[in-house]
Design a protein around this nucleic acid. Structure first.
Length: 110
DNA sequence: CGTATGACGGTAG
DNA sequence: CCTACCGCCATAC
């Protein structure tokens, strides 16, 4: 039980706040949590995200690349979900990333 | 407790 | 812009 609360739950909370059609980066989440240097930890937390029902498909790396799509059920499920929300994704790469980017440390602050 | 790993980020070249 | 290396924090073994 204690293995679930803490940093992980904090990551899931932020990811759940991501609006549809928006995406954020691991570094942005880590930055919001205070552990900005540990973007890796965010990805590590996402490893269990599928058991939390977290929309991890809205979380991509700094380049807007769907690095974690391999962790999803299908091969292109993550891409399909994003395109379904209005995000254009080509070859695992989000197009117009700046237009879809959602920074919690900014959006939740303003 | 020490080592290895991880869906990354930033800087350097 | 692309490639390569280091650093970062937390979890697992």
């Amino acid at each position: 039980m204690k293995s679930n609360d803490g940093f992980f739950e904090r990551v899931y909370e932020v990811v759940r706040l991501i609006p549809e059609g928006r995406v954020t980066s691991y570094g942005a989440i880590a930055n919001y949590l205070g552990t900005k240097g540990s973007a890796r930890m965010v990805g590590w937390a996402m490893n269990s995200s599928h058991t939390k029902g977290v929309p991890a498909h809205r979380v991509v790396n700094r380049k807007g690349l769907l690095t974690g799509k391999h962790h999803f059920q299908g091969t292109n499920l993550m891409q399909q979900l994003l395109e379904n929300e209005g995000v254009v994704v080509i070859d695992n790469q989000i197009q117009n990333l700046e237009n879809h980017f959602w920074d919690p440390s900014v959006e939740l602050t303003r």
